[in-house]
Amino acid sequence: MRDSKLVVRNLSVYYGDFQALRSINLSIPLGAATAVIGSSGAGKSSLLRALCRMNELWDNVRTEGQVLLDGQEIYGPDVDVTEVRRRVSLIARHPYPFPKSIFDNVAYGPRLHGIKDKRKLDEIVKRSLKQAGLWNEVKDRLQESALNLSPGEKARLCIARSIAVEPEVLLIDDPTYHLDPVSAAKVEDVILELKQKYTLVFATNSMQQAGRVSDYVAFLSEGALVEFGPTSEVFARPKDRRTEDYITGRFS
């Protein structure tokens, strides 16, 4: 087992009276791709949001337990939330670029963090777009509106937008949501590339995708963590009945 980047201890998330996550314990390995699988409503998105304190934006949400980033608590009272969110960047399920140009979308994050030098921005934008596998498609129209991109390109643009702030962990909520197979394959390629550089956590509904892309799998059911382990192991020899049923598509 590798070092842990993020350690989750007894994490519970409540929306009002509804408990979305039931005391999750999880260590997310450094420099690997971890897939969070489970049926919709199992708490995948809640888990991802809790890892970067984005769940605080939801109404009457309550979070209990700890999340440690490099061994340090991110829910502490003196923690700068923006710093946490910069280091652990969440890419939401619906990729909505800002209604600006492609360049400005990617440069948005770096500009926020005080980078004004045009040449430096150029470089960051280029590198981020390259990493998101979008550079060749858009390099000639960087000043065009990002809203004219295709859904698949928008998804990759949002990935580039997050990469540009140089996060340490990338959280991707269902990266291929509502995408056609061709666009989805491109996004998957990007993720395969990214996991060389970043610690990746992504939620997905597709078993094939989890199998293809991830190194580790966490299976959530009704807010509880049922099983966690290397993908090959979990897929080949699931320890829990529920995991096996879910993976093989059997539901009683």
Partner: peptide, 21 residues
């Protein structure tokens, strides 16, 4: 749309930066 706030905050913007930019 709320997604503007969400995306901006997810990139590590402060609340004021989100409002301003």
């Amino acid at each position: 749309p709320v997604s503007f706030r969400r995306d901006s905050l997810a990139l590590g913007a402060t609340r004021w930066q989100t409002i301003r930019w």
